[in-house]
């Protein structure tokens, strides 16, 4: 019996780690996607869709006879809601709710030691939890983006959908917005994972990040480069003109924005992975 575990559990190596990674992602996904835990994030994800649909329906009802609403106008409305509401509030708080809890939630339910006692490198654990959170948040808000996008065809009618998507700019725009959504989840996700892991009281850094992204339009150019909003705003394919909204005057080029976000997320994740090696179990406070 003694040797049994050595026979069936392969010796440490990349194959084993990959298997552990997928197993943990699966377990975490099941935990995060089921039950009431997902409800706040789900509400945040669906609310803008409801708003866009309502707007579409109202416009359609109030249509003067003979008016033909243009899809391009509706795209502008979408872009506005997307930047001012979806990115700024929904994705932000959705990611906070999901990623802050990846480690803090386990500490609060006093079950983190089960993970730490598994024969899994802690770096693998960080990566697995992050991927699970990313999949959850990414899927939720891709849902928001796609459903919200569909709402823009309500005023003009869904017969516009095919032509606009296939022959017009529709597909490219939608794909860009979905891409931005994933990048946002990646950036905010990395930040909140690290915050939830490193800080005992994650609300302070969260409030700080919220305030930082909020005052972003007033920041000097150099500091602007240190905010997720800056890069996300640069990527928006449709210009948005709303006063005091965190869109950049001087957008970063696309490769810089995407690369910058990727690098930033990687750096934050790296920090989290480095710090978790010395993390101690302390269920005492809270």
């Amino acid at each position: 019996m003694l040797a049994e575990s050595e026979v069936t559990l392969a010796s440490p190596g990349w194959r084993l780690r990959a298997r552990q990674l997928t197993a943990i992602v699966r377990i975490e996904l099941r935990q995060r996607l089921t039950g009431l835990r997902i409800l706040p994030a789900l509400l945040l994800a669906l609310a803008p869709v409801g708003l866009l649909m309502l707007a579409g329906i109202l416009i359609r009802i109030n249509l003067a006879p003979g008016d033909t609403p243009s899809v391009a106008e509706a795209v502008k409305v979408f872009a506005e809601v997307y930047h001012t509401l979806v990115l700024r509030f929904c994705v932000f708080f959705g990611c906070a709710a999901i990623f802050l809890m990846l480690f803090r939630g386990d500490v609060m339910s006093r079950s983190l030691h089960y993970w730490f006692m598994s024969p899994v490198r802690r770096e693998v654990l960080v990566l697995a939890k992050f991927l699970a959170g990313l999949a959850t948040a990414g899927l939720l808000f891709t849902g928001t983006t796609v459903l919200g996008w569909l709402a823009i065809y309500i005023p003009a009618g869904f017969d516009q959908l095919g032509p606009h998507m296939l022959h017009g700019p529709g597909l490219r725009l939608l794909a860009t917005y979905v891409g931005i959504t994933w990048l946002a989840c990646l950036g905010y996700g990395a930040v909140f994972l690290a915050v939830g892991q490193l800080f005992r009281n994650p609300i302070l850094p969260t409030a700080f990040v919220l305030a930082w992204e909020g005052i972003h339009p007033f920041l000097p150019p150099l500091l602007k480069k240190l905010s997720v909003t800056h890069y996300l705003g640069s990527l928006g394919p449709v210009p948005v003109e709303v006063p005091l909204i965190s869109l950049v005057a001087e957008p970063a080029p696309v490769p810089v924005a995407v690369g910058g976000l990727l690098l930033f997320s990687l750096a934050v994740l790296g920090l989290a992975a480095w710090r978790i090696r010395r993390m101690e179990i302390d269920y005492g406070s809270d």
């Binding site: 069936t8 559990l9 392969a10 084993l16 780690r17 298997r19 552990q20 197993a23 943990i24 699966r26 377990i27 935990q31 089921t34 039950g35 386990d106 339910s109 006093r110 079950s111 030691h113 089960y114 993970w115 006692m117 598994s118 024969p119 899994v120 269920y283």
Partner: peptide
Amino acid sequence: YCSQHDAFPPGLTGLGFVEAFLLAAGFR
């Protein structure tokens, strides 16, 4: 290892709990 705390990851059955951490360890 068994901690002195009586705490578990939420929402699992007894079997699911034991199995989850075997899977995480890399067992098939």
